[in-house]
Amino acid sequence: MSGKPPIRVVAACGLGTGTALYLKMTVEEILRKAGIPAVVETADATLAPTITADIIVTGPDLAEMFRQRARAREIVAVTNYGNKAEIQEKLLAAVRRLEG
């Protein structure tokens, strides 16, 4: 895995200060454990769709909004931020789609 360039992930929420930061910590941990090199940043609802990222991770409401116009290749919608298994499953599925 070490030869691959890191994927670019954006954790997004309305303001970029609360849930996005929370998601960033979880996403970094999941990708690190899965051995996937990644750069994870946070963004608010205005900035996130303009970033040419591989994956945006956010809640279902913003995901719906981003799907219309985001530049990211994959959008992951997390319903329950307390459920690490949900985040992991959806995130790693998106990583596999990138690779496939």
Binding site: G18, G59, D61, L62, M65, N80, Y81
Partner: peptide, 9 residues
């Protein structure tokens, strides 16, 4: 921006 602050059940 919608009810995104409801982040867990």
């Amino acid at each position: 921006l919608g009810p995104y602050i409801a982040i867990a059940p």
